[in-house]
């Protein structure tokens, strides 16, 4: 399978603190990849470097074959990012938000209309498509943000804590949607603390701790490698505890 996203020796330092220590990772086209780890492990830093919101201290990022540093705009055209606390224009309606994002990606108005209508229906926002977002509940805002992030049909969809605020029905349909999009070839990268979600959705899981990728593989690979029959949650806790003891000894 072709690698859609490549982290090649990516390093990120904040002053003296090393947040990401030489990350090497390939994520394939159509793959659902989950990045999990304790708070401050380097997940959000890695995702932000992937969309150009942070500059790597060292290493290279490639998206769809484009070197991010050299061909930024082309690389960004393939990506969509929903951060954990997304900014949303309160004084826009969901429809206006979709139109705006679509135009930023130079989409034809007709295509924006087709995709937008489909997404608004999917996220059950059609009946409020002309209501200002400032009047929405948290969950509805999240839906509007997700819809706007998908309007330009990105090749790589990056989500930081994607299900926060969504109701159970929406979570179920969004999970189905993600699976369907991955089957169509969209690469999905999600960072989450909800380990059940990673276990349920992801083809591969990367566990990051203190800026290092300490485990990588499908849930079955991880169970096999660590000779464990436990679920991801227990495996994750044991792995992180072992790493902490190891780093204390060092």
């Amino acid at each position: 399978m072709a690698a859609m996203v490549e982290f090649i020796g990516i390093k990120k330092c904040y002053g003296n603190k090393v947040a990401v220590k030489g990350l090497d990772l390939e994520i394939n086209m159509g793959e659902i990849f989950a990045l999990v780890g304790p708070n401050g492990a380097g997940k959000t830093s890695s995702l932000k470097m992937l969309v150009g919101l942070l500059k790597p201290t060292g290493g290279q990022i490639r998206i769809g074959g484009y070197d991010f540093a050299a061909e930024r705009v082309k690389a960004k055209g393939l990506v969509s990012f929903v951060p954990d606390t997304p900014y949303v224009y309160e004084k826009l309606t969901p429809w206006e938000l979709l139109r705006f994002v679509g135009k930023l990606y130079s989409m034809h108005p007709k295509v924006i209309e087709e995709e937008g209508t489909m997404l608004l229906e999917f996220f059950s926002l059609s009946h409020v498509q002309d209501v200002l977002i400032e009047e929405f509940s948290h969950g509805m805002r999240q839906k509007a943000v997700l819809a706007s992030a998908l309007v330009h049909q990105p090749k790589v969809f990056i989500l930081d804590e994607p299900m926060v605020g969504l109701d159970p029905m929406s979570i179920k349909s969004f999970k189905d949607f993600i699976r369907r999009k991955a089957a169509e070839g969209m690469t999905i990268i999600l960072s989450t603390h909800a380990l059940y979600l990673a276990e349920e959705l992801a083809d591969r899981i990367g566990i990051i701790h203190e800026g290092e990728l300490i485990a990588l593989g499908s849930i079955k690979d991880l169970q096999k490698k660590y000779q464990s029959r436990e679920n991801l949650e227990n495996m994750f806790i044991k792995l992180v505890e072992t790493e902490e003891i190891r780093s204390q000894k060092e």
């Binding site: 969309v51 150009g52 919101l53 990506v79 969509s80 990012f81 951060p83 997304p86 900014y87 224009y89």
Partner: peptide
């Protein structure tokens, strides 16, 4: 501005 991360993650220069 909190708008900048949103714009910077799109093809806006």
């Amino acid at each position: 501005s909190r708008e900048i991360p949103l714009l910077a993650s799109t093809p806006v220069e």
